[in-house]
């Protein structure tokens, strides 16, 4: 067992963990249930969280390595997410919702890095977030409508 401290959603969380505890399991056990698991092969993007402001796959990060770092899940970024997810809801593109947290987290990362992306830049940045329901186009329309709304303001 290892004692670790992670700055999780703005709060210092200390816990004893196994050497092979994955960050995704650590997060879910600390009530960050937005973090979802969709595969075992790093392909789906459902488990995306921000570590030191960088989007990563929490299924492939040992909790031990996250020690001392800052981690944000969707639970900690409700306000930032709320600024744009309504536009995706207006498209009905939330659908089953299971990919949404990972998709929203990576969209947050995209918009922080590139506040005015082109459609191609949006597609490229979010390519690692699979969605089987929406066909992606509605997610894109939602993000585009949000960006347009900013310009209109």
């Amino acid at each position: 067992m290892i004692e670790i401290t992670i700055n999780l959603n703005g709060k210092k969380i200390s816990d004893r963990i196994e050497a092979d505890t994955l960050l995704i399991d650590f997060l879910r056990s600390h009530n960050c249930l937005s973090v979802k698991r969709g595969c075992e092969t790093t392909n789906c993007g459902l488990c995306t969280v921000l570590m030191d402001d960088t989007p990563i796959l929490s299924c492939s990060m040992l909790a031990a390595r996250a020690a001392g770092h800052t981690v944000y899940t969707l639970e900690g970024l409700q306000e930032e997410a709320s600024s744009f997810v309504g536009f995706i809801a207006d498209q009905g593109a939330d659908q089953c919702g299971f990919c949404n947290p990972g998709f929203v987290m990576n969209t947050i990362a995209l918009l922080r890095e590139n506040p005015d992306p082109t459609d191609d830049e949006i597609r490229a940045f979010l390519a690692g977030n699979l969605c089987r329901c929406s066909g992606y186009e509605g997610q894109l329309r939602g993000i585009r409508n949000y960006l347009n709304s900013l310009k209109e303001q």
């Binding site: 790093t42 492939s60 990060m61 490229a124 979010l126 977030n129």
Partner: peptide, 11 residues
């Protein structure tokens, strides 16, 4: 650029 996704490439 085509390797899995941004999150993967960040790791």
């Amino acid at each position: 650029k085509d390797i899995v996704g941004v999150q993967f490439r960040n790791m």
